[in-house]
Structure formats: structure tokens, C-alpha cells
Amino acid sequence: MHSVPEDSTDRLQLCRPLTDDAPGLYAILSDPRVWEHYPSLRNTAITQTKATLERWMRGWDADGIGTWIVREHGSDAIVGYGGLSLRGGLVWNLGYRFAPEAQGRGLATELGRRALERAARLTGNCPVIAYLLEENAASGAVAEKLGLQLVDRGPDAGNPDPSAVRLVFADRSLTTAELAAARQ
């Protein structure tokens, strides 16, 4: 069983996460091809995926928006996830991942546009950021397609790769406090 779409786009059903989504989501989160830029975050046990789903469900309850489970219209298969999470109560973080078979088709941009629209309706005064690794050129290109601008570049604290660099793209200039929240 999966949920009724909470929102949709031309090609995508955007559903609030349910615990029943764990197997389909685990197939994505455990795939090493999805974690090319941050392999240590790959799920190696379904319990990790279940904990992620629980965190996302709490986010929806607390913020009225969160990470969607993504399916294409006419299919029950999960092709990805993405949406918004509130960082430090000050910035919306736009994040997503798609199964390798769904990548390169503009789905992340389509999802990102809907997330930006929702953020503007929900709290128009709260900036939206994309927090990504510099080597992930595809995610950087999506951020730019969505109209986000690079506002910060620096070391990725906590990354097992000491040479990793994080980029912060945003829909507007950020205050010092908002940038600190973005980097949490």
C-alpha cells in the first residue's frame, strides 16, 4: 500500500512517506550508484531506511511539508525522493535522490520547482537552499536551473573525505545565522 499523492507535477506523484515505503526506498538508498559522491551514507540495512522514513514523517508533522516519496504517474514503483527539510528553523533545504534509471530525465528539476513553489506558499520569508558536494555537478546544474545562486563554498565538516567541499546555493542572500543553519 502506498499513500495517495500529496502533490503532483506533470510526470510525478509526490507522496508523504509511509513505513510501507521502506522496501522500495531501500532499493534506492542501498544502491552504490546513488551514493557516488558520498559512499559512506549508503544504507546497508533496511533499519537505516526505516529510521530515515520515521524522521521524514516527523518532519511532515512538525513543518507541514517535508520529503516526498516520488513515483511516476501510472506506476507504483518508487523512483526517488525529495523535497524540503527545515534546517535550524531558518532555511528550507531542498534535497533529492533518484534511482539511477530515473536520473538524467529532468525529474529532479521538476520536483525542485514544485518544492520551491510550496516553500514560497508556506513561508515566503524563509530562504531555500541546496546544500551539495562540489563534485556533484549534476546537482549543481539542477540548483542553477531552479534559479538558485551559489552563496558559499567551504569544507564539508564531518565528511570522511577531508578534501570534500560543500556548496550552498540559495534563492536569496543569506544572513550569517541562515548560512550557519544551512551548514548544519
Results as ranks from 00 to 15, higher is better:
residue 1 M to Q: 08
residue 1 M to E: 10
residue 3 S to K: 02
residue 4 V to Y: 11
residue 5 P to A: 15
residue 7 D to L: 13
residue 8 S to Y: 00
residue 9 T to S: 07
residue 9 T to A: 12
residue 12 L to M: 02
residue 12 L to Y: 07
residue 14 L to C: 05
residue 22 A to T: 12
residue 24 G to P: 05
residue 24 G to E: 04
residue 29 L to I: 01
residue 31 D to E: 08
residue 32 P to M: 13
residue 33 R to D: 10
residue 33 R to I: 06
residue 38 Y to T: 11
residue 39 P to S: 02
residue 42 R to A: 06
residue 44 T to G: 00
residue 46 I to F: 03
residue 47 T to Q: 15
residue 48 Q to R: 09
residue 50 K to H: 06
residue 51 A to K: 11
residue 55 R to Q: 11
residue 55 R to C: 10
residue 56 W to V: 05
residue 57 M to Q: 14
residue 58 R to S: 13
residue 59 G to Y: 06
residue 65 I to D: 11
residue 65 I to S: 01
residue 69 I to N: 04
residue 70 V to I: 12
residue 71 R to M: 05
residue 72 E to A: 15
residue 72 E to M: 09
residue 73 H to N: 00
residue 77 A to Q: 14
residue 77 A to M: 07
residue 78 I to G: 10
residue 78 I to Y: 03
residue 79 V to D: 03
residue 79 V to K: 05
residue 79 V to Y: 01
residue 80 G to F: 00
residue 81 Y to A: 14
residue 83 G to S: 08
residue 83 G to V: 05
residue 85 S to I: 06
residue 87 R to H: 15
residue 88 G to W: 09
residue 90 L to N: 02
residue 91 V to W: 12
residue 96 Y to E: 05
residue 100 P to S: 07
residue 102 A to G: 06
residue 105 R to S: 10
residue 106 G to E: 14
residue 109 T to V: 07
residue 110 E to N: 06
residue 112 G to F: 06
residue 118 R to F: 01
residue 118 R to S: 08
residue 123 T to S: 13
residue 125 N to R: 12
residue 128 V to A: 14
residue 129 I to E: 10
residue 130 A to F: 01
residue 135 E to P: 08
residue 141 A to N: 13
residue 146 L to S: 02
residue 146 L to K: 13
residue 146 L to H: 05
residue 149 Q to F: 12
residue 159 N to A: 06
residue 160 P to S: 00
residue 162 P to D: 07
residue 162 P to S: 05
residue 163 S to M: 08
residue 164 A to T: 03
residue 165 V to W: 04
residue 165 V to H: 07
residue 167 L to P: 04
residue 167 L to K: 09
residue 170 A to I: 06
residue 170 A to W: 00
residue 173 S to W: 12
residue 173 S to T: 14
residue 174 L to F: 13
residue 176 T to A: 15
residue 181 A to V: 11
residue 182 A to V: 00
residue 183 R to E: 08
residue 184 Q to D: 11
